[in-house]
Design a protein around this nucleic acid. Sequence first.
DNA 1: TCATCATGTAACTTTAATTGTTACACAATA
DNA 2: TATTGTGTAACAATTAAAGTTACATGATGA
Lengths: 137, 137
Amino acid sequence: MRKDSRLSRVLHVLIHLEMADQPVTSDKMAEMLSTNPVVVRRTMALLRDRGYVRSSKGHNGGWSLAKPLDEITLLDIHKALGEASVFTIGLTDEHTNCPIEHAVNASLKDVMNEAEKLMLKRFGEITLDLLGAEFKT
Amino acid sequence: MRKDSRLSRVLHVLIHLEMADQPVTSDKMAEMLSTNPVVVRRTMALLRDRGYVRSSKGHNGGWSLAKPLDEITLLDIHKALGEASVFTIGLTDEHTNCPIEHAVNASLKDVMNEAEKLMLKRFGEITLDLLGAEFKT
DNA sequence: TCATCATGTAACTTTAATTGTTACACAATA
DNA sequence: TATTGTGTAACAATTAAAGTTACATGATGA
């Protein structure tokens, strides 16, 4: 099953951003991430919409933090990226009226909701400066 | 992100299987699931490999349970389907030696592991007869 | 002011993985 | 022995994300 590594990538970039004393261009980031500047802009735009980063044009332009890392949580970034669900496991579309199908889906949904809730709670507890701190030790 | 609904589908089918007094053909199942008999065989073959179901050929052939539902857990089926991870969130390939990237991935991995562990624990606690029981009430 | 650097974004192509399909071999049974 | 069913290889279709191209627009500094 395909994985979405935007979260991992963008966190990586944000922490680098904090250490830079100048805006960092999409080109530089793309190079870091072995990807394309347009892809970077697409993803970063989602964060800008939420006020976590800023972009500027022209000479010495690029991306910079709009908020200190200790005020941004993993959950914030995860939400900004707008992935519908964290699970690869999906439920069947219940176009039938089969009560068994409904029961199965309800059970699965319960378990997945519980796990997702736990995960998002943890994400909410981790600010991005902690990620940076961890590597500095 | 694409979802894998094989788990949901196959559970649905297994509970139906229990109630059938004859083997059920791949064609019937495919119709139930609005899919293709070959797809059904592919998925069911994974369960047969683990001894949860049996298949027989010829007249009155088809699929039947090889184990009572109260001896099969959600976790058993999940494992049989062989999905690598339950999460849509992936980590970057660490071809670089960037310590920040490593730290970010380690943190994400921690949180995901914890959530996955919880989820699989719950899956292990739910036997398939419980799913059926739930709908009967 | 104007060449240059940078983002913004639409439109399109590529990629990767599953799912669906076709075709045919093989086995069981009425 | 015709029919019913699985087993499986090989291929096509689908789909969603990622990548790419192209060009507009804005900012900056020489």
